[in-house]
Structures are given as structure tokens and as C-alpha cells.
């Protein structure tokens, strides 16, 4: 059956009228903070204690917006007669967020977990130079990094935990065998002593 002429027009009117009676989807942002998903890419935080100045992030950055300065320090030998070690010390770590395109490659590539996404996004500035965040500011963003979301119930155990658990189990097993041998020893001693007691 061909549609009644004008039914399309009525349908259009119905759609707008229905939408009007529904709740709006507007987010009243400055009054109401948005609920951001945990993996939101807001700003990049630097956990500088983990940074080894390997420069991988700066090299992989497509925008060249990461600036790193460092110098070498020699650490005296830990044990007498040992070798002196040299260590990289971070002098400057800065990300220019006016260039950054939030691709997250630096975070992916960091082998020591020194860079993290934070959902904070309200860091607009009136001067573009202010958008270059130095290491202290980047360190501050670390406090806003949420805890990683919990793993799926059926997920494989993370490697770190597996390794730690293995080590712990090993240790426990070792302690258990030690305890067992000790117990045997005391038992043997006790059995040696027992006849004596029986002799009494």
C-alpha cells in the first residue's frame, strides 16, 4: 500500500514533538562535572621516580612535544672492590600540550611505567607557553591518575603477581621443608631422650 501523502510530514512533526517531551541530553558542564570513563585521555602524568631517561618517549613522540634533559652521575661501588656504576639523572622533563595530540604513544612505549593518562582536562591557559608542563606539574598530575580498573574475573593473572606469587610459594615451600626437617630433628632428639626418661 502506498503511504498516505503527507504522512512523511506528520512523521517529522511527531519526531520533534516526541523529542521535546524527553529529557535533554545536555551536560551542564561547569555546573555539573562530567562522568569520565576511567581511560579518558585528559593529561599525561609523570611518575618521575620510575623514569630512567631512556628517551624512548621523546623519540617516539610524533609531535616532538616531549623535552628531556639529563646528566650522568657515577655511583660509587656498592661493595668494596666493586665497579663504579654510572646512572642517568633527570634534569628536565616537559610536555608541550599545545603540540601534543594525545596519541598516547609515549605512555605505551615507556618500559618503566613512568607515564600515565590522567582524566583531568581543565588546564586551559591564556598564554600558550603555559601549556608546556614541566616535571613538577607533570608529577602533580600523577595524584589524579585513577587506579587501574580491576581485571576481568576470568582474566589471566598479571605477570608481576604471578612472579611474586611464585616467589612467595617457593619461599613458603622452602620454609615448610626447613620447618619439617627441624621438626624431624627435634623429634629424633626427643625420641633419643624418651628412653632415658623411660629409664627413669
Amino acid at each position: 500500500m502506498p503511504p498516505i501523502p503527507g504522512s512523511g510530514l506528520a512523521k517529522g512533526l511527531a519526531v520533534t514533538l516526541r523529542t521535546m517531551t524527553r529529557k535533554t541530553v545536555t551536560a551542564q558542564y561547569p555546573d555539573v562535572q562530567p562522568e569520565l570513563p576511567p581511560r579518558t585521555r585528559g593529561v599525561i602524568g609523570l611518575f618521575e621516580e620510575n623514569c630512567t631517561v631512556c628517551m624512548l618517549c621523546a623519540r617516539e613522540c610524533p609531535d616532538w612535544c616531549i623535552y628531556i634533559d639529563s646528566h650522568k652521575e657515577t655511583v660509587p661501588a656498592a661493595a668494596p672492590g666493586g665497579r663504579e656504576r654510572s646512572r642517568n639523572v633527570l634534569d628536565r622533563f616537559a610536555i608541550d600540550f599545545s603540540l601534543c595530540m594525545y596519541c598516547g604513544i609515549c605512555i605505551e612505549v615507556c618500559p618503566f611505567d613512568a607515564l600515565f593518562w590522567s582524566p583531568e582536562f581543565e588546564y586551559a591557559e591564556t598564554d600558550i607557553h603555559e601549556l608546556t608542563h614541566e616535571r613538577d606539574k607533570l608529577r602533580e598530575w600523577m595524584w589524579t591518575v585513577p587506579a587501574p580498573p580491576a581485571l576481568d574475573a576470568a582474566a589471566e593473572e598479571p605477570k608481576e603477581i604471578a612472579a611474586a606469587r611464585k616467589a612467595a610459594e617457593k619461599l613458603a615451600a622452602q620454609q615448610a621443608t626447613e620447618a619439617a626437617t627441624e621438626a624431624e630433628a627435634t623429634e629424633a632428639e626427643a625420641s633419643k631422650a624418651e628412653p632415658g626418661e623411660g629409664e627413669q
Binding site: T16, L17, T19, M20, T24, V25, T26, Q28
Partner: peptide, 9 residues
């Protein structure tokens, strides 16, 4: 009216 018909405020 226009806003609410478009799901806005």
C-alpha cells in the same frame, strides 16, 4: 522549544 525539540536545553 527548538532546544528541547533537539534534545538540548
Amino acid at each position: 522549544v527548538m532546544a528541547h525539540m533537539q534534545g538540548r536545553l
